[in-house]
């Protein structure tokens, strides 16, 4: 039945494209999570009056984050071509999309991490200090556990942004559903391919949102 409605869709190609999208999204989400967490912690901890309060360092990190967050993704991909060639060796395929995806998403997530950390009750940090906690203990036993719901909902939003970034990366040769919709759907005038690619991306986004919401609710004991 599907074949009669979607005459131009090659199912094996579609499956491969979906796998590529999932692959790009999954790897970039994981790396973005850790990189964004580190950057966000750095932003928070160097802010005035905090554990490593340092105005200069804080401004440097803030500028880097703001610059990379402000560059439109499609331009970022082009700007990063030399860098990508250097570390991946090619501009084709799913791997080639990863540097741009991560560089584009990590600063975005870092800001969300910073906001999440700011929400933590200052008194709890003071209590940990009064018990003689080291800065590392404060980070891993207070800051991160106390902000988990916000960290998870933040990475959910970031993951969804990353899925749409992968579609853009696809247009410049990284494969995936975006690539399929553009090359097979738009360029060859096969509307059914574009439609089904869109539908699959929507399904991926909904699933991510659902999982993210479930985890956030389960973690929140407030």
């Amino acid at each position: 039945m599907l074949s009669t409605w979607f005459t131009n869709v090659q199912w094996d190609v579609l499956l491969e494209a979906t796998n590529e999208t999932l692959y790009m999204s999954a790897i970039s989400v994981v790396i973005t999570f850790f990189l964004g967490l580190a950057l966000g912690l750095a932003l928070f901890l160097t802010s005035p009056g905090n554990l490593w309060g340092n105005k200069f360092l804080n401004s440097v990190i803030a500028i880097i984050v703001n610059v990379f967050r402000s560059i439109p993704f499609i331009i970022l991909i082009i700007l990063l071509i030399p860098f990508t060639r250097l570390i991946v060796g090619t501009m084709l395929g799913a791997e080639a999309a990863l540097p741009a995806l991560i560089v584009g998403a990590a600063p975005f997530y870092a800001r969300m991490v910073e906001i999440a950390l700011r929400e933590i009750n200052k008194g709890v940090i003071e209590a940990a200090k009064s018990m003689g906690a080291t800065n590392a203990q404060i980070i891993f036993k207070v800051l991160i556990p106390e902000s988990t719901p916000a960290l998870v909902s933040g990475i959910t939003v970031t993951a969804i942004a990353l899925v749409s970034y992968t579609a853009m990366a696809g247009v410049v040769g990284a494969g995936g559903l975006g690539n399929l919709a553009y090359m097979e759907g738009y360029q060859r005038d096969n509307a059914d391919v574009t439609l089904i690619s869109t539908a699959l991306i929507l399904v991926i986004v909904f699933v991510i949102q659902w999982i993210g919401d479930r985890i956030t609710t389960a973690l929140d004991k407030r």
């Binding site: 009750n121 008194g123 709890v124 003071e126 209590a127 207070v142 556990p145 106390e146 988990t148 973690l219 004991k221 407030r222």
Partner: peptide
């Protein structure tokens, strides 16, 4: 305000 860790 007690300053307990809500996550624990």
């Amino acid at each position: 305000h007690f300053n307990l860790l809500w996550s624990r």
